[in-house]
Design a protein around this nucleic acid. Structure first.
Lengths: 333, 333
DNA sequence: TTGTACGCGTTATCAG
DNA sequence: CTGATAACGCGTACAA
């Protein structure tokens, strides 16, 4: 229907075999140069276009990579996707993009769907709540490469790319300490998610390393949504021992906290300093602009694709990459 | 390799023909219910999963929609994609996402690639510079549904979804006029792109309709990048007849203009008011927060998919949808 | 209700 | 260097 002209049509027209046409179109040197060119020319004339469905079926590959993220329209994720796309398209790969809405169930369904569609690999940033990892076992059994990024879990034996969150958290605290802040609070995500765990650990170690004050109430574990920032800001205001800085595990929470504090006439950074994570575009436009950790989204995407290629070459050991992040200093601290 | 078990394995095990298995798995009532269930059960046990490559080849369909946007990580586009994905995945469609980097050449290549991959439809927001539309003719000849969104061209005979930009521009100017602004400038995009053309036309008609001042220098046609806002703001500052408001055809330009003006001690909105287009997340966080036109990105994505489905049902007339946008009033005017 | 037989478009393989 | 043939896995007219 869609694709009328096949290699057989070309073959018939030139009185040669379709297999020769196939080889010619693949530019195989097992076909005489002259024939090759003739084939290409008539292919062009006839408006031939290869049916990749058939080709892929034969080759048992789809040249397609499945990508699963919680939300496509989160800036970080769309930028990672953009990075993957850049690298992948250069190598002739296509991307199938899926969003899980941060639901574990959806993660599993999507993985199954992608597997059934014979994707060559799955790149996934897991749903926040994921605890069950049965679906990964399936993928593993079927021997399809899985690359984790950002939301990873250390107990899964797959190549992965993440920011060095521990280091980043440590350094942000160091920055705060150097600026004279002594009582740093932390809004963090669920601790079964590596990135949040590592940010928390970096925070904890920094407190020790830089001799900062510590208080149990200064830490909240949450889903890192806007309302969580509001909630924590409200909590802080009624504390006897109030922190003088908050390290937030993402920008959304930092900004919602900032606005809540400001609405109650608490000045940032004078009364309380704030640091976020992610370098969302909007973080540059708050007042004051938010100091934040850039997560190198584009780079993560590119590296994820590199890992995939390495995996293709030789099924070596599982490589877990940590990308060094950088602090974007602005005026919220 | 990836998929060991086929319908033939099931057939062999049950001593029936593979065609029966095929029908059973498709839940055809031409197979006895008992057999059907038996087949499904053993399929499950054996860990059978359908090879969609083979299935699609046979059916001449891929249940895949190709989506081309200039940049995946622009909030508007990633949200449209998100909207498409929501609707599409419910109907069993997958999305192949491509970015053109706003290059005409890339648009053409990507369309060809998608066609070769037998996608069931192509959703595209064209590159800004596109003037040549040969590649659309190819798609048309091959009879693959094309849905345009956002960046469309009226001379192309395809279903499309856009914001009613003319109306939106008119209404923003009305709002400005009501607030007492009399001299409105306009930073617009290339006039061969419908959305920009319509915004400009709405602007022009508003000037007439609301008896506003007009000056040739108050309009700039550009690529709508950050630097363009800077450039225009600089130009304005040296004008004898300086406008008291700027309607910008996107938020990026509005914000860069805002910052440039402020850097030169021109206050917003006191000296010059600003309105943007797109309702980018960051527009809520500038100071002052930017009044802007919400473009209903999610809705556009969903409607695009609806158009595709209508097209499937009956190849009726070409439907061009206009979505009513809404002005998000904030304090930049 | 089930089986037979073939086609989808391409490519691997073997033979010449 | 080229041709013939089979196979990839599935779906479906047609026959039984």
């Amino acid at each position: 229907m869609i694709n009328k002209i096949t290699i057989h049509d070309i073959a018939r027209k030139l009185n040669i075999d379709s297999s020769t046409v196939s080889r010619a179109l693949a530019n195989s040197d097992r076909v005489k140069l002259k024939t090759r060119e003739l084939v290409k020319k008539t292919a062009d004339e006839l408006g031939y276009r290869r049916n990749h469905l058939a080709s892929n079926l034969r080759k048992q590959r789809s040249y397609t990579i499945g990508v699963i993220v919680p939300y496509i329209n989160r800036h970080f994720f769309s930028t990672v996707i953009s990075g993957i796309e850049e690298s992948a398209s250069k190598q002739g790969y296509k991307l199938i993009i899926c969003q899980s809405g941060d639901q574990e169930q959806k993660d599993a369904e999507l993985m199954e769907m992608l597997i059934n569609n014979q994707v060559d690999a799955i790149f996934i940033s897991m749903a926040m709540t994921t605890t069950n990892t049965e679906h990964f076992k399936l993928a593993q059994k079927i021997d399809i490469p899985i690359i984790l990024f950002d939301r990873i879990r250390d107990d899964l034996p797959f190549p992965s790319v993440v920011i060095d969150d521990y280091q980043a958290a440590l350094e942000t605290c160091e920055l705060l300490a150097k600026k004279g802040y002594q009582s740093i609070a932390h809004i963090g995500g669920r601790q079964n998610v590596s990135i949040y765990k590592n940010r928390y650990l970096g925070y904890l170690d920094a407190i020790e390393k830089f001799n900062l004050n510590f208080c149990d109430d200064w830490h909240m574990e949450c889903n890192m949504e806007s309302k969580d920032g509001v909630e924590f800001a409200n909590k802080i205001m009624h504390m006897k021992k109030r922190p003088d800085a908050i390290l937030c595990a993402n920008d959304i929470v930092a900004i919602s906290a900032m606005r809540t504090l400001q609405a109650h006439s608490i000045e940032v950074p004078k009364d309380i300093a704030l640091i976020g994570f992610s370098n969302e575009p909007l973080s540059a436009y708050t007042s004051p602009p938010l100091t934040t950790v850039d997560q190198k989204a584009l780079e993560i995407g590119q590296l994820a694709f590199n890992l995939f290629q390495k995996h293709q070459d030789k099924v070596g050991q599982v490589e877990r990459m940590k990308v060094k992040s950088s602090i974007i200093q602005r005026s919220s601290c």
